[in-house]
Design a protein around this nucleic acid. Structure first.
Lengths: 197, 197
DNA sequence: GCCTGGGCTTGGCAAATGGCAAGAAATCAG
DNA sequence: CTGATTTCTTGCCATTTGCCAAGCCCAGGC
């Protein structure tokens, strides 16, 4: 396992010389998680940012009635952490759980701060990465505001078919903002429509 | 009009010496907007970040059917811009409109980059400010996922009563993810419940 | 003062979604 | 393999919300 995909990801967010990119990834170390293992637990301070080389991670929390709510899926070739906890050194509100077995490259908060200070390209990359995450969340927000549950389901299955092969439907339901009952009905209706076309 | 509230805001996000704070705010310049004026228009690149000294600004876009969707309200003592457009120099997808007459302190992209480079405290402030905006959006997302429209209305009126005094209800409706018809009914029901307590 | 237009409310009906409970299917442990 | 547990589907009914149309009310222009 080498850092090639991490380097590619960084180059894609902010192109820089190979030398700089090599310097940036130097501090990243490998880690593995079993299926259902925890990358981060609520209440603890998030001290590492993980680049997912292989596998899928989800974030979740609990609503006032004690129901699990899946807040995001992190597929391969993305960064995952609890942004607020990581950068403000505050207790995390969410769990980060490996939905499948995972291999990641992680960097600690201390190493990241040091690298931010030393490498201006890495600073800029870090900022753009946060902005991209914000942007993703904003699109999701917009989709919640103006689309029906069926449209959101359709979008997800088109944009991330891999998720459906590995993630229990109940996680997907709460992610879409509906109950597993409704998701089941939507899937049925969706299959019916697809068949008739 | 002086920069005192801007300085206070910065100190609150990231405490630093008064000298540093003074250096940070140096590049900010004043601007004014009439009611319904535009701080930013969709399609243009967002080239300034505004700290709202006075007034309320909203962001909005259009859905596929051409309906306006209000995506956020920015009250006094917050920063507003189109994050993605500002940092990636891409065309904005949203409009930023002054809902009331507004006075702001703004900094251009170029000045901000220069100050980021020169003042490490400002860099850190900038990052924390983005993280805070992400966090705000995440809470809003969570509220969309797990709360009813009536609960979201209740939260908004408790946390930001000032908005209701200045903003047309139809903006608030699309912000809450419902139609103005539904909002009207929810308000009626809400008033009934409040009266009976 | 009168007209006009936009913003808000209301009623009637249809569609979407949730809550509950039962059953079917898949998965897991022993 | 078997039994237990979890996940998923389905039916029934209530609630929420949307859509459409009508009407009210208030502010601004003449």
């Amino acid at each position: 396992m080498n850092k090639e995909s991490l380097v590619q990801f960084i180059q894609q967010v902010l192109p820089m010389s190979q030398a700089k990119a090599g310097q940036v990834v130097e501090k990243f170390k490998p880690m593995q998680f079993e299926r259902n293992g925890y990358v981060l637990e609520a209440g603890k301070v998030c001290n590492a940012s993980h680049f997912i080389e292989k596998g899928i991670i989800r974030s979740y929390t609990y609503d006032v009635d004690g129901n699990e709510v899946t807040t995001a899926f992190y597929p391969e070739n993305t960064f995952t952490n609890d942004l607020l906890s990581f950068f403000k050194r505050s207790p995390a509100k969410e769990y980060l759980q490996a939905v499948t077995g995972c291999e990641t490259w992680y960097i600690t908060y201390e190493d990241m701060q040091a690298s931010f200070h030393a490498i201006s390209e890495f600073r800029e990359f870090g900022r753009l990465n946060i902005v991209n995450q914000y942007s993703t969340l904003k699109e999701r927000m917009l989709s919640m505001l103006q689309e029906t549950a069926e449209q959101r389901y359709s979008n997800l299955i088109n944009s991330s078919p891999g998720i459906f092969q590995n993630v229990p439907l109940k996680y997907i339901a709460s992610f879409l903002g509906i109950t597993d009952t409704s998701l089941s009905r939507i899937r049925k209706e969706f299959a019916r429509k697809a068949a008739s076309c």
